[in-house]
Simulated scan of single mutants.
Amino acid sequence: MTYRFEFRLIARKFLRSLTTSHGNWDIRESIILRLIDAAGREGWGEIPPISWFGSETLPQALDFCHQLPQEITQEIIFSIPDALPACQFGFESAWEGLGTGDWGQGDKGTRGQGDIPITNYPLPITHYPLPISALLPAGEAALNTWQKLWEEGYRTFKWKIAVDAIANELKIFHLLIDSLPASTKLRLDANAGLSYQEAELWLENGDKFPEKMEFLEQPLAVTEFEAMLQLSNRYQTAIALDESVATLSQLHAAYQQGWRDIFVIKPAIAGSPSRLRQFCKQHNIDAVFSSVFETAIGRYAALKLAAELSQPNRAVGFGINHLLKKEEETWLQRLWQNL
């Protein structure tokens, strides 16, 4: 069977720069794609690369889309090379969605022939089938942000570290951990920005708060896998791999090398959804599914995987709606109006 293929490049602004150890991020670009079968049924997908996280670059994804014919086959979709994991996710998600009309609770009654599926995101937190972790801003701003998110229903928070001097961040950490309610879980995300000694210091401090401290995410560089494996055996605070397991090939490699702590999985850049399902079900890993600031289209496909494969005690990292401008429905409709 062949499918008509169309795509558009889109860009959205963060409300303010997202600060990580990799630098500041101001604009989120991705590719929205649509497949249409012979019966006129549609499947939507998104390609949201993050090259510094291990996926292809946006120009590489665009080049791939441009070189495809206007009609493609299932064989083309499932032969996308592993070097293009975000493309694998986008095309396979669109293929899986062909004709299902399965776009969640938010779009009932909003979809007409040729219309983009509108999902009315962000949905209230209680509408999701899984608990959601909210991302706090880096630095002192986290101290004035968590209360509003708590009132919205979030009970797990992630805070970016390794963006300032460790002494300053530890002071903020203690203020934050003391102010959070007892039932809260806190995740620290270093984005591979710590030294071994700094990671030890964070883990020592985390061990003082076992009820609230859920895990330290990617403390060291991807090249320091053995050091992180060693740290995971020395401290009570769990370590979660993130950049080290960004793609399916990295997931396989980390598991084969003995990693049995937490895996953070970003479905939108991990690669083929079908092969990701197979890996997670075969190995029953402790997985935390996480966003890459995709649109409603990519987010829905990623959350479907998370609902199917997540451990029931792990909040998924999709609490990011408060960080992007609330213009999604407007531009999603405008994107395809001239087709």
Rank of each mutant, 00 (worst) to 15 (best):
L323H: 01
L241V: 03
S291A: 11
S291L: 07
Q70N: 11
A141Y: 00
E308F: 00
F173D: 01
Q256R: 12
W103F: 15
F293E: 03
Y128M: 08
T2E: 14
P122R: 04
L309P: 06
Q236C: 05
S249D: 08
I239E: 04
G109W: 00
F91V: 11
Q218F: 00
Y121N: 07
S30G: 10
A287D: 01
V245H: 11
L229V: 08
F225R: 12
I32V: 14
Y128E: 07
L324T: 00
E152G: 03
V292L: 07
T184K: 04
L68P: 11
E42I: 04
S310H: 11
R314A: 07
T247C: 05
K281G: 02
L251E: 01
I36D: 02
S291H: 04
K171C: 02
Q60K: 14
E211D: 08
V264R: 06
Q105T: 06
L58R: 06
W150D: 07
Q218K: 01
H252P: 03
E243W: 11
G271F: 05
A268Y: 02
H127N: 11
I297W: 04
I50G: 01
L339P: 04
P49F: 10
I27E: 03
E224F: 09
A38M: 05
G114R: 15
G193H: 02
E92C: 08
S272W: 08
A301F: 13
E75F: 11
Q197M: 10
I161M: 11
Y255D: 04
G109R: 06
K148W: 09
T145Y: 06
V288S: 06
A238M: 12
T110S: 13
